[in-house]
Design a protein around this nucleic acid. Structure first.
Lengths: 252, 252
DNA sequence: CGTGGCCTTGACAGGAGTCAAGTATGGTGG
DNA sequence: CCACCATACTTGACTCCTGTCAAGGCCACG
């Protein structure tokens, strides 16, 4: 018997009462696997479910009138991208699997009922949407105010920090299975420029990004370049990352 | 005796019960006037209050490591910009008066208590934060994927639409008391380029923006240029703006 | 061992930024 | 009532960051 996907995430935030656990168990779940590039939901769909990432990597995005796609967030294991639509009746964005993923669909009206009956759970979920919004604001700042190199560096810093906070990082490395096209859509740059900027970061021995694995060799320098300050992620346990230093040669 | 600022906004969303009205009245309010350019709260401040705009125009913004400011949202009368921080303990953004404004400060812990005791009100407020987040995502798309002219046009379309939905527009006109510096910080463009793009929009007889008043002379053409679709604003009453057409000459 | 993604590279173009100077505009005080 | 000042807006010239186009190389997968 599989654990309820809401349970593991909520338990991380607050200790749950028996009553709360029972309420959670009453939310119907439906699991499913999605392959790379597949859309889970599309702009204009009515919101009818609420997705939890079980594994893999999802991206929320919008396509503008010229067909250019803008990714507005990445979602790791245990993230709930659909929370942003819980109280909205129609989606105005796409949700797509950037890498092969497994997801759980929770019934939306059951989720709404859960929030009505369990205010503490509602508060935790609400808080999660606010953190997502804070990340969105930081992305806007990133895209609107930083030059290409800093922008990419910032995204990479965020990904490692979030993976680390979620217990998904391995030292200075974490999974980040994206193509350069994905990166270009997340940063608002062209793929060619993403390619060149990545090379510059690699040549400076700051990072490597290959086969879907991101490694940051010199955190202090990269974070400084990016102007990265993790405050906007509102992590509960402030794990201060100060010392994953060392050149590529030193690590390998 | 002044009406409670929460009341007018919530009443617009759902009919309130007596019990709910009583709970709202128990939230302490403190009104205050702020002058142009004044910061109401700053990045790093603990969230201790929750602001409602009574009149004027506020902007949320972040300053990057190079001192460049990015505005992430504008807030009109009755908006509650601080709702984005209700469940977060520390602010990661600034809130500033773009124009002379009046605001009401609601006590944050009283707001949290209100949400705990009145789930319907919590749901309405939660929904408001989700709409704000949806706007943020659209801004990201705007800044990340549209060229300067389209980007500005999109912002102007949004402002008129929101003013209209809030009952603050006068036909094809609304207040928008911003400087070109403000516009540049909201769009991620330079002030010089904002200036030239505005002139281009004016020369095409699409808009005027002077003395803090925005007028859109040819909505269909401007909206098309901007790729503007109001769906992301999640307005309850879909007031379809299709026909504020006419050249400047025809209107004046 | 093809074949289609994806990554890489070079050459070129252009949108947007910067710098710098000049022009309105509105508020202030003499 | 008008001179003065600060702030905002305009304009021109020039630079450069980033995008576009196009071709070639490198896998991974069938």
């Amino acid at each position: 018997v599989l654990e309820h996907p809401l349970f593991s995430e909520l338990q991380r935030q607050i200790p749950l009462t028996n009553d709360e656990v029972d309420s959670i168990d009453r939310v119907p779940v439906h699991r499913s696997a999605v392959s790379r590039g597949q859309d889970l939901v599309r702009e204009g769909d009515p919101s009818s479910s609420c997705i939890v990432v079980i594994s893999g990597l999802l991206a929320m995005s919008k396509v503008n009138e010229l067909g250019k796609r803008q990714i507005s967030s990445f979602h790791l294991k245990r993230d709930m991208p659909d929370l942003m639509n819980l109280h909205l009746d129609m989606r105005d964005n796409d949700l797509r699997a950037v890498a092969p993923s497994e997801v759980a669909y929770l019934d939306r009206s059951a989720m709404l009922a859960l929030c009505r009956s369990q205010p503490r759970i509602a508060a935790v979920l609400w808080r999660k949407t606010l953190v997502d919004a804070a990340v969105l604001a930081e992305w806007l700042t990133n895209v609107g105010s930083r030059p290409a190199l800093h922008r990419l560096a910032h995204l990479l810093c965020e990904m490692l920090t979030r993976n680390d906070a979620a217990g998904l990082a391995d030292g200075a490395s974490c999974a980040f299975p994206v193509t350069q096209l994905d990166l270009s859509e997340a940063t608002g740059l062209s793929t060619v420029h993403v390619n060149r900027s990545l090379q510059e970061l690699r040549r400076a021995d700051l990072i490597s990004l290959e086969k879907g694995v991101l490694t940051i060799y010199d955190w202090p320098r990269l974070a400084k370049l990016a102007g990265f300050n993790s405050a906007y992620l509102h992590l509960k346990q402030q794990r201060l990352r100060t010392s994953t230093k060392g050149s590529r040669a030193a690590l390998s």
